[in-house]
Each structure stands twice: as C-alpha cells, then as structure tokens.
Simulated scan of single mutants.
Amino acid sequence: MTELRTVGLFVLTALAEITGCYLPYLWLREGKSIWLLIPGVLSLAAFVWLLTLHPTEAGRVYAAYGGVYITMAILWLWAINGIRPTSWDILGSAVALTGMAIIMFAPRQ
C-alpha cells in the first residue's frame, strides 16, 4: 500500500506543479487573463506542500519525482494540448518511471 500511496502522491504533486506553471504560461504566451496567476500561485503552493508529504528524504524524493513528472507532462501534452505522444515519448516515460521505481522502492537498510 505504501507504494500505491507514494505513486499517487507523486501524481498529485506533478499535477499541481504542471498546473501552476501552465496557468502563467497561458497569461504570458496566449494572452489569457492575468487572474490566472492566482490559481497558478495556489497550485505551486500546493506543489511545495505535497512535496513535504512524501515518506523519505527530500533528495531521493526529488530524484524519483522527476520520472513521474516526465510521464505526467507527456500525458498533459496529450490531454490538454491535444498532441498524441510518440512511441519515443512513451518509451522515455517508461524508462523514467522505471528509474523512479528503482529509486523509491529499492530495499534499504
């Protein structure tokens, strides 16, 4: 159950970070409302808070989180931007998730 909780927490963390970065992008690059900065800031604050909930050392969490972030960014590209991932995107995400699993779930003393 710990593994499932960890992966779920990584997914929520990645969604908060991507959302917090995407909303200012919409304002700066797409000419959307400046009011998008408010939920953007709140989302980035949630991202920071969620990072503190992970059950292991910060450096290990940051290293492993990168694998989930890569995968979530590719899924975001597909779901939000409507750009279908290539087989290379999928392979890269699989490699990144494998790295995350090795870092987070390897036996430790």
Rank of each mutant, 00 (worst) to 15 (best):
residue 4 L to G: 02
residue 5 R to S: 10
residue 6 T to D: 01
residue 6 T to P: 00
residue 8 G to P: 06
residue 8 G to S: 11
residue 8 G to C: 09
residue 8 G to E: 03
residue 9 L to N: 06
residue 11 V to R: 00
residue 12 L to G: 03
residue 12 L to E: 03
residue 13 T to L: 06
residue 13 T to N: 10
residue 15 L to P: 01
residue 15 L to W: 11
residue 15 L to C: 11
residue 17 E to I: 01
residue 17 E to A: 11
residue 18 I to V: 14
residue 18 I to S: 10
residue 19 T to Y: 12
residue 20 G to E: 03
residue 21 C to W: 02
residue 21 C to Q: 04
residue 22 Y to V: 05
residue 22 Y to N: 09
residue 24 P to L: 06
residue 24 P to A: 05
residue 25 Y to K: 09
residue 25 Y to I: 01
residue 26 L to R: 15
residue 26 L to A: 13
residue 28 L to E: 05
residue 29 R to N: 10
residue 29 R to T: 03
residue 29 R to Q: 11
residue 30 E to M: 10
residue 30 E to L: 12
residue 30 E to G: 02
residue 31 G to L: 07
residue 32 K to H: 07
residue 32 K to F: 05
residue 32 K to M: 11
residue 33 S to H: 01
residue 35 W to F: 14
residue 35 W to I: 05
residue 35 W to G: 06
residue 35 W to M: 12
residue 35 W to A: 14
residue 35 W to R: 12
residue 39 P to K: 10
residue 42 L to R: 05
residue 44 L to K: 08
residue 44 L to R: 09
residue 44 L to S: 07
residue 45 A to Y: 08
residue 45 A to M: 07
residue 45 A to C: 06
residue 46 A to Y: 10
residue 47 F to M: 05
residue 47 F to Y: 14
residue 49 W to V: 07
residue 50 L to I: 00
residue 51 L to W: 01
residue 51 L to Y: 00
residue 51 L to C: 09
residue 54 H to K: 11
residue 56 T to Q: 15
residue 57 E to N: 07
residue 57 E to H: 06
residue 60 R to I: 00
residue 61 V to T: 13
residue 63 A to R: 02
residue 64 A to M: 13
residue 65 Y to T: 02
residue 65 Y to P: 04
residue 66 G to R: 03
residue 66 G to I: 01
residue 68 V to T: 13
residue 69 Y to A: 15
residue 71 T to P: 04
residue 72 M to D: 00
residue 74 I to Q: 04
residue 74 I to M: 10
residue 75 L to N: 05
residue 77 L to C: 09
residue 77 L to A: 06
residue 77 L to K: 15
residue 79 A to K: 13
residue 80 I to F: 13
residue 80 I to K: 15
residue 80 I to T: 09
residue 81 N to G: 10
residue 81 N to W: 13
residue 81 N to F: 09
residue 82 G to K: 13
residue 82 G to R: 12
residue 83 I to S: 06
residue 84 R to T: 13
residue 84 R to F: 14
residue 84 R to Y: 13
residue 85 P to E: 07
residue 88 W to K: 14
residue 89 D to H: 15
residue 89 D to W: 15
residue 91 L to G: 12
residue 92 G to A: 15
residue 93 S to Q: 05
residue 93 S to C: 11
residue 94 A to T: 10
residue 94 A to N: 09
residue 95 V to E: 03
residue 95 V to A: 11
residue 97 L to Y: 12
residue 99 G to R: 15
residue 99 G to M: 15
residue 99 G to V: 10
residue 99 G to W: 13
residue 100 M to W: 00
residue 101 A to T: 07
residue 102 I to K: 07
residue 103 I to C: 08
residue 103 I to T: 04
residue 104 M to C: 12
residue 105 F to T: 05
residue 105 F to H: 10
residue 106 A to W: 08
residue 108 R to C: 00
